[in-house]
């Protein structure tokens, strides 16, 4: 459900009435941040499938571990025995709007806003990688055609 909500704002299905797009995600190996990786991957897959989209969605978890605001928490950080908060964020690239926001743990409002600003920078990095992956795929296909 969270994945659907985070991708829905960018996917334009108006050209396909009465049809459903299924996205399947498998997690062969996990070390926290799975839903973020899944959303980022699903967004590439949607673009690769040629589904009309208004924007790209990039996702990363931010949070606070023992007083420090960090991005992309791993399992060790998530389960660190201190005050920890884990905030999965998905961001639309062009508008910088947030389509996924969840949080577990403990955080003050000012740290939350700080973490979200950090999320802006971190999702930008994910975005560049997503675009790179898409471009690379089509470049190799071009070479094969020649």
């Amino acid at each position: 459900m969270v994945m659907e909500q985070s991708l829905k704002p960018v996917v334009d299905l108006s050209a396909f009435p009465n049809s459903v797009v299924d996205i399947f995600v498998e997690l062969p190996q996990t070390d926290a941040g799975t839903r973020c990786a899944a959303i980022s991957a699903a967004c590439i897959a949607l673009a690769d499938a040629g589904i009309p989209m208004k924007d790209m969605v990039s996702s990363v978890a931010v949070g606070q571990v023992d007083g420090m605001v960090v991005a992309d928490l791993n399992y060790g950080e998530e389960s660190y025995p201190a005050i920890v908060s884990d905030i999965p964020v998905a961001m639309l690239h062009n508008t910088k709007e947030i389509s996924l926001l969840q949080m577990d743990g403990e955080i003050s409002k000012s740290d939350l806003l700080k973490a979200l600003e950090m999320g802006k920078i971190a999702t930008e990095k994910v975005y560049l990688l997503q675009v790179k992956a898409l471009k690379e795929k089509f470049m190799t296909e071009d070479k094969n055609d020649n």
């Binding site: 996924l100 926001l101 949080m103 743990g105 403990e106 955080i107 003050s108 409002k109 939350l112």
Partner: peptide
């Protein structure tokens, strides 16, 4: 006033 969970 500490936030303990968020859900959008």
């Amino acid at each position: 006033g500490t936030i303990s969970a968020l859900q959008k």
